[in-house]
C-alpha cells in the first residue's frame, strides 16, 4: 500500500534497514513465541526447555492437550466474553466522554478550566490499589434504576466493572495534548460561520482525531482487559468474571504450566486482534488527516 519508494531506499540501505528492524523484532517477539510454543508442550518438557532456545521452538511432544484441559478447568469462553464485553463498552464510552471533555478544555473558554484540567491530570498519580477500598464502599451503596426497578448497590453486575472506568486522566490528557496540535484556524473559521460547539466537535475535531482515537482506544483496551483487583472485589459470581480473574483458576495447587500458557495464548487473541485492527484504522486515518493537515 505504500509503494512510493524514495530514492535513498535502494539496495544496501534497504537491506540494512530491514536487518535492523528484524533484529529488534526478535527482541520483542520472544515472549509471545514462548507463550504460544509452550502451550503445545507437556509440562515436564516445557519446564526443561526453559533453559535453552528450545523454549522458542515447537519441538518434542506437541499436542493440543493443554487447550482441552484448560477448557475443562475453566469456562474460558465465558471469561473472554465478559472481558470483551466490559472492555468494548468501556472503550467506546471512554473515547466519547474523554474526547468531549478534552475538546471543552482545549477549544472552549470557560472559568476554572485550567484548574480542573490540572486536577484531572493529578488524578493520574493515584494508584488504583490505594483507592480500591473506598471505591468498593461507594459502589456497594450507589443507586441504580434498571429494568427491574430501583436498587441500591452495584455489586455483581457488568456496570460496576464499566462505569467507574469510563473517564480517566490519562485518556483525557492524551486527547488534550493532541487537540492542542490541531490547526486552530479551522475551528475559528467554523465558529465565525456560526457552528455550534457540538457541530465543531463532531464535524471538525473528531474527523481529525483518528490517530489519537486509535492510541487512546488501544491503551484503554489494555487497561480494561487486564483488570484484576477491581472485578475480584465487586463480582462474586462466576458468570461475571473476566479473564484475569479467570487466570487464577490455573494457579490452584495442581498448577499446570502448559495449561496456563494455553489459557494465556487464548486470552491474548482478542487484544492482538484489536491492536491489529486499530493499527489499520490508525494508518487509514493518518492517510486522510495527512491531506487535511
Amino acid at each position: 500500500m505504500m509503494a512510493t519508494i524514495s530514492p535513498d531506499n535502494s539496495g544496501l540501505r534497504l537491506a540494512v534497514r530491514y536487518t535492523v528492524l528484524s533484529l529488534i523484532a526478535v527482541i520483542f517477539l520472544f515472549p509471545l513465541v514462548f507463550m504460544v510454543v509452550s502451550s503445545f508442550k507437556p509440562d515436564a518438557q516445557l519446564l526443561a526447555d526453559t533453559a535453552s532456545l528450545r523454549a522458542f521452538l515447537p519441538v518434542g511432544d506437541i499436542s493440543l492437550d493443554n487447550y482441552a484441559a484448560a477448557f475443562a478447568r475453566a469456562p474460558v469462553g465465558l471469561f473472554v466474553f465478559n472481558s470483551v464485553l466490559v472492555t468494548g463498552v468501556t472503550v467506546l464510552l471512554s473515547l466519547f466522554v474523554c474526547s468531549l471533555a478534552a475538546f471543552s478544555f482545549v477549544f472552549l473558554r470557560w472559568r476554572g478550566r485550567k484548574l480542573l484540567l490540572a486536577i484531572i491530570v493529578a488524578t493520574l498519580i493515584v494508584p488504583f490499589e490505594t483507592i480500591a477500598i473506598p471505591l468498593l464502599l461507594i459502589a456497594a451503596n450507589l443507586p441504580w434504576i434498571g429494568l427491574d426497578g430501583f436498587q441500591i448497590g452495584w455489586l455483581n453486575t457488568y456496570r460496576v466493572q464499566i462505569i467507574p472506568w469510563i473517564a480517566d486522566g490519562l485518556t483525557i490528557f492524551l486527547f488534550v495534548q493532541y487537540f492542542k496540535d490541531l490547526p486552530g484556524e479551522l475551528i475559528e473559521a467554523a465558529r465565525v460561520e456560526g457552528a455550534s460547539s457540538w457541530t465543531i466537535y463532531r464535524r471538525i475535531v473528531m474527523p481529525l482525531a483518528g490517530p489519537v482515537l486509535a492510541t487512546a482506544a488501544i491503551l484503554k483496551f489494555l487497561i480494561m482487559y487486564n483488570q484484576y483487583l477491581w472485578p475480584l472485589m465487586v463480582v462474586q459470581q462466576e458468570s461475571y468474571r473476566p479473564v484475569m480473574v479467570g487466570l487464577q483458576y490455573f494457579f490452584q495447587l495442581n498448577r499446570a504450566w502448559g495449561e496456563i500458557m494455553a489459557y494465556l495464548s487464548m486470552i491474548t487473541v482478542p487484544v492482538l486482534a484489536f491492536y491489529l485492527y486499530m493499527q489499520r484504522a490508525f494508518i487509514a486515518s493518518i492517510a486522510s488527516t495527512g491531506v487535511k493537515g
Binding site: 466522554v97 471533555a101 472552549l108 478550566r113 488524578t123 490505594t130 477500598i133 464502599l137 461507594i138 462505569i163
Partner: peptide
Amino acid sequence: MALPGFGLIAIFIILPFFFAIALSFTNQRL
C-alpha cells in the same frame, strides 16, 4: 461538555482518594 468526564472522575477517583486521605489520619484496619 467536560461535565460527564469530570463528574465520573470526581465520583470514582477524587472522592475515594479524599476518603483515603481521611483514612491516613486514623487507625482504620482492613
